[in-house]
């Protein structure tokens, strides 16, 4: 069985990325100290599509997400090997402006993590940081709040504490905050895992609305959710306690006719 898995990992080799590839990951590995969390991942992420990362927990999906905007730099003992190429730039090469990279690749976390300041200030902070002129702040804030459908709900209390919002509203404000910088890619780490079904539904519809305009990579444990929102999927699997990607491609193809036995079992709810 483990041989099969090993081969599965190897079977995902992709050729060298072409320059117009939106986001290309080659031979990526992540380790925490001596423990390898993720090995030899090859994936191409397409522009304007929603890519769902699925698989059992502990298989390195979140670790993978953290490498794409180099948030992995902040995790003690975390080392990254291999290549990540975003719009023709190797993001792990020297002289990469990490601030700029993270402005171009936004991120939304499992739990809403708004700053302990007002709703307005939460949106102003990234805008000011990246040089948005003062007279544009209000316009841009309103834009993103309308995009995530929060404007009608909070327009009359922008100066209230962001923590006074409900969980679903907070998560949408987090998305709005990430959108303030007009990111080309939005990373979402199980954005609905702390929300109730109603709030989850709102976020899912929001993701569907954003498709095309934004490129989204979303980690989810919820297969039904992946089926509802994903254009592409990548299936993460564990082998010898380290994760790898065993299968990736168009969502429909993977869900309808999975190639790997582990994927078949996982989708059928028999494993993982």
């Amino acid at each position: 069985m483990s041989d099969c898995c090993f081969e599965a990992c190897q079977s995902q080799r992709l050729p060298d990325p072409e320059d117009e590839t939106f986001l290309a990951v080659r031979n990526l590995s992540v380790h925490y100290g001596a423990k390898v969390a993720l090995e030899s991942v090859d994936i191409d992420i397409q522009r304007g599509r929603v890519t769902a990362l699925i698989g059992p927990s502990g298989c390195g999906k979140t670790s993978f997400l953290f490498t794409l905007n180099r948030l992995s730099d902040l995790i003690p003992g975390c080392g990254v090997g291999g290549r990540v190429r975003f719009e023709g730039t190797e993001i792990y090469s020297d002289g990469v402006d990490i601030g700029l990279l993270r402005a171009n690749i936004g991120m939304v976390f499992q739990k809403p993590n708004l700053f302990p300041v007002s709703i307005r200030k939460n949106l102003y902070l990234p805008l000011r940081e990246h040089g948005c002129p003062v007279n544009q702040l209000d316009r841009r804030s309103e834009e993103v709040l309308r995009e995530v459908g929060l404007w009608s709900e909070v327009s009359d209390r922008l100066d209230a504490s962001a923590h006074s919002l409900s969980g679903g509203q907070q998560q949408r404000l987090c998305i709005a905050r990430a959108l303030t910088l007009r990111p080309k890619l939005l990373l979402m780490d199980e954005p609905c895992s702390s929300l109730d079904p109603m709030a989850t539904d709102v976020i899912e519809r929001l993701i569907l609305k954003m498709r095309g305009e934004y490129s989204i990579v979303i980690v989810t444990h919820n297969l039904a959710q992946a089926q509802r929102i994903a254009d592409d999927v990548a299936v993460f699997w564990c082998h010898d306690e380290s994760g790898c990607v065993i299968e990736s491609g168009h969502a429909e193809a993977v869900f309808r006719a999975p190639k790997q036995p582990d994927t078949v079992a996982y989708l059928a709810g028999q494993r993982g």
Binding site: N69, N113, F115, V117
Partner: peptide, 27 residues
């Protein structure tokens, strides 16, 4: 101060200096 704020700030591409001045020191 919860480390959530640090991650959020980093993910928004904020520099250490502005994280400190605008979030961490007030918090």
């Amino acid at each position: 101060v919860p480390s959530d704020y640090r991650l959020a700030g980093a993910a928004l591409g904020m520099s250490h200096t502005s994280m400190l001045l605008k979030i961490l020191l007030p918090a």
